[in-house]
């Protein structure tokens, strides 16, 4: 599977990674080689094999429905860049 320059820029944008054109050119090669390696899996006959959702052979444990977490807002907000009146502040989001 081949990957193109535009694919790299798009993936970077979706992941909010700032890369320049030169980086992108290099990643085209790197990512294509990774994909080639993964492509080997396409050769395996998976007819009748259910997709694996998790590598561990285990199922999800469940938690009792109890509100047990204390309010730790002060501690959590101590490391936030900007807070006001209990809210986390971010650059204005335009709808």
């Amino acid at each position: 599977m081949a990957i193109e320059h535009a694919d790299v820029l798009r993936a970077a944008h979706l992941a909010r990674l700032g890369i320049d054109d030169a980086d992108a050119t290099r990643y085209v090669g790197d990512l294509s080689r990774i994909l080639e390696m993964v492509d080997a899996l396409q050769g395996v006959d998976t007819e009748g094999v259910a997709p694996l959702a998790h590598p561990l052979d285990a199922t999800q444990p469940l938690r009792a429905d109890e509100a047990i977490e204390p309010d730790r807002r002060e501690a959590f907000q101590a490391c936030a860049p900007s807070v006001s009146q209990g809210y986390y502040l971010v650059p204005r989001v335009v709808e």
């Binding site: 938690r63 730790r72 807002r73 209990g86």
Partner: peptide
């Protein structure tokens, strides 16, 4: 529910902002 889907923080409506948001 009393608590959130993946955590033990309360789901009660109308609390002070961010007082029911755990790690």
């Amino acid at each position: 529910t009393q608590s959130k889907i993946f955590s033990g923080a309360s789901t009660a409506y109308g609390a002070e902002p961010n007082t029911q948001a755990c790690a």
